[in-house]
Design a protein around this nucleic acid. Structure first.
Lengths: 220, 220
DNA sequence: AGCCGCTTGTGAACGCAGGAACAAAGTCGC
DNA sequence: GCGACTTTGTTCCTGCGTTCACAAGCGGCT
């Protein structure tokens, strides 16, 4: 059995494919039928050559001299990323951030659907967000099993994030997106992707400070 | 004039330094005085050798045979990252996400302070969040100038993000953290760091799917 | 005082991502 | 029908990040 294409796609490429998918959706809504690599790269903020290399990972899909067909490319990327089928997710921690995430329409159009929202505080339980009712943490395991959810999102305070992570992993969750500002440890077979807003802000500030320092140096 | 140390620190290292800073703060609160590279690396989820290389960018600070002094290392990292002095930030878009960001205490302890919260909807203007009153967009430029803010955060819907970006850049903002799911273009001298939650989720899902596919293949 | 174990800091090798340049291929104009 | 132009797909190369491995240095013990 031959392998149709090298099924290992670099992580950096995957992130950009998701961006291309978003741009292509916008182009399709605008009525565009074809797009060149240069134009698409400009809209996505990347190098044209790099974009073509990214796209080459999923086989030739463009037409030389013309460009890429918008809808065909979009569907192909969606298939590779697995965005065509809906994936069940659960969200733990219904604070401001959790509410924002539960309400965010962008997830639904990308193949993700929340099947459970959980919080430990009784004051939060029962309220309705984005068509779902917030449940108490005690129902976490049952809901995960019922919908066979494989993705979990942690938007809790840092203190309880590790215990939530443990419970999610034990309940069968395989992928965790962590917004809590702590480094989580999960059993093998479960991967955690941290999204730390403070870190992002600090990196941004440092790069800016470094840039201005260099500029001042050149002037001197 | 000699340069005390190579002042170009890799971006990836800066991101990890911010994580070390967080871990060190936790250790200091716990009463620890010294810590070894192995322990710190484990707590931060990175390789010990990589951690030492990261730390070497800011000059030798550890004691061989013992480890690093927690508070000294913390202050040195904070100084390099510029977290010791307070930086003025403005936040545009007071939806659920914007509210979460404005309320997040983690920013303040890292040297960031919001000096202005802005929204275009009159219904949002006037409410108080985290000690600040939400202002109308029309006051954006005046507030930025008054506080000499250099960092801006965009948490608006995608449709208006580019125009907000333009206004921030024109007002004197040099660094922008963008949560809107669009690729922004900014003039030279202004750098934009995108934080796309859908992209993060899609990358996570893809990696999980790839992992399970490979596992199934091995079994076969 | 001298030795031993522990830990840091650095040098080297490896693998990977990014960028530029080029060949292949298809379309449009004549 | 043929040539020129446009655009893709690929290949090479350069630079960066990460990892491994080892020498150097410091504290503690005898």
């Amino acid at each position: 059995m031959i392998q149709p294409r090298p099924r290992t796609i670099p992580e950096a490429t995957v992130g950009r494919l998701a961006v291309y998918l978003r741009v292509l959706t916008g182009l399709a809504d605008g009525g565009r039928t074809t797009v060149s690599s240069g134009e698409l790269a400009s809209a996505a903020g990347v190098n044209p050559a790099g974009l073509r290399k990214d796209l080459s990972h999923l086989g030739s899909c463009g037409v030389r001299g013309v460009g890429y067909e918008v809808t065909a490319l979009r569907e192909r990327i969606a298939r590779v990323l697995g965005a065509e089928r809906s994936r069940a997710c659960v969200l733990v921690g219904i604070g401001n951030l959790g509410t924002a995430l539960a309400d965010y329409a962008g997830f639904g159009s990308r193949g993700f659907r929340f099947v459970g929202l959980f919080d430990a505080a009784p004051s939060q339980v029962g309220q309705e967000i984005g068509g779902l009712t917030v449940q108490h943490m005690s129902e976490l395991e049952a809901t995960v099993a019922e919908h066979e959810a494989t993705i979990g999102v942690i938007a809790t305070p840092a203190e309880v994030a590790q215990s939530v992570c443990d419970r999610l992993a034990a309940a069968g969750i395989r992928s965790i997106l962590n917004f809590a500002p702590v480094t989580l440890t999960a059993p093998v077979g479960v991967d955690v992707r941290p999204v730390d807003l403070s870190v992002e802000l600090q990196v941004l500030a440092f790069l800016g400070q470094q840039r201005t320092a260099r500029a001042a140096e050149v002037t001197a």
